[in-house]
Design a binder for these strands. Structure first.
Lengths: 183, 183
DNA sequence: GCACACCGCTTGCAACAGCTAGCACCGCTG
DNA sequence: CAGCGGTGCTAGCTGTTGCAAGCGGTGTGC
């Protein structure tokens, strides 16, 4: 009969092997997807360029990339970095996110703006406030992801924070319901 | 007196030289920004990893990247692709967009929806998490509005929360030039 | 017909991303 | 104290990115 520490090590090794095998399988699939995506974003760029009646050299100049490389990208022979895609998007006068989606860098989400992006774009907050909110958000998202996998005790919850209901000056502006009213 | 076609060609060449010079200047500036961004995203990844109490090798395994490379990324010695950032984000259980923003792939202003709406719509959070974040957000927005009207002491800030900044441990060791220095 | 400018592309190459092999160090176990 | 498993890191390598130099083809002006 194996000793407890040996048993734990065997279990850990077994789990790691399983994880490694799954990762290898996922990587193989990702490689195929990557080739398809590469030629797809190239077709998209060439179509956008044709629609704008711009030559390859003109787009390359305005994007700040070399024209042979742009040709290779359009023909699906090269996989451009996000930096190059961003430059090409500027040259085409379209949003970088559009090319990122074609390139598989961004998923095609249905409408909802990311919380992170919204916080970062919010001009009602200072940089310090933003940093704190983002850190807290990531912590909560991580906790939630963990709790979904292994539900915790009902009593567990987020860290306690200072009470807010005090001076009248903290009353929200008209037309801006507080979170308590919405709850 | 030059002929009309010669004159046009001279003018076009002059404009092109001007554009080329401006592009070169912008490229030089972008290179500097790129170095800063590289070490910044590395710091962010290491901070997130520490907050999650995960070792470098554990994160590398779950992300599917090699641990020496992840170490180089965290120390700002390598500039990872969007693909690698996405994998690291999965390993950290945070959104890929978060890392993209740190890496300069996405601008801060990519989202336009309000922060409150985004938090409410976010499915990665529990209702209780949402309530806490929203209360904190309202507090910060009010503070910011008040500070704008009557600027407070410079030292004033949001309530104390876990440390966000860490020592610049990503500085390369002596004798180890960054890849940009070699260029 | 020639010179010129522009077109999209091929080729070779330097720089870099991402990996493997292996290092030194640390804490735990027997 | 030796052995083991973990840590973060260095060194060297391979494959890919993105560029410069140059190609052949086309249209225009003289």
């Amino acid at each position: 009969m194996p000793k407890p520490t040996e048993f734990v090590r065997e279990q850990v090794s077994s789990v790691r092997d399983t994880v490694a095998s799954a990762a290898a399988s996922a990587a193989a699939e990702a490689s195929t997807v990557s080739d398809t995506v590469t030629s797809h974003v190239g077709d998209f760029i060439r179509n956008q360029r044709s629609s704008a009646h711009v030559s390859l050299r003109e787009l390359a100049r305005s994007a700040g990339v070399s024209n042979p490389y742009l040709s290779q990208v359009e023909r699906g022979l090269r996989k451009p970095s996000a930096e190059i895609l961003s430059a090409i998007a500027r040259g085409l006068k379209i949003s970088a996110e559009t090319l990122y989606e074609q390139a598989g860098i961004l998923d095609r989400r249905s409408g909802t703006a990311g919380t992170v992006a919204a916080i970062r774009a919010d001009e009602a907050l200072s940089e310090r406030h933003k940093a704190v909110l983002l850190e807290l958000y990531e912590t909560y998202a991580r906790e939630q992801a963990r709790d979904v996998a292994a539900p915790a005790d009902v009593g567990a919850g987020p860290p306690a924070l200072p009470e807010l209901s005090t001076p009248a000056e903290s009353t929200p502006a008209p037309g801006t319901p507080s979170t308590k009213e919405l709850a």
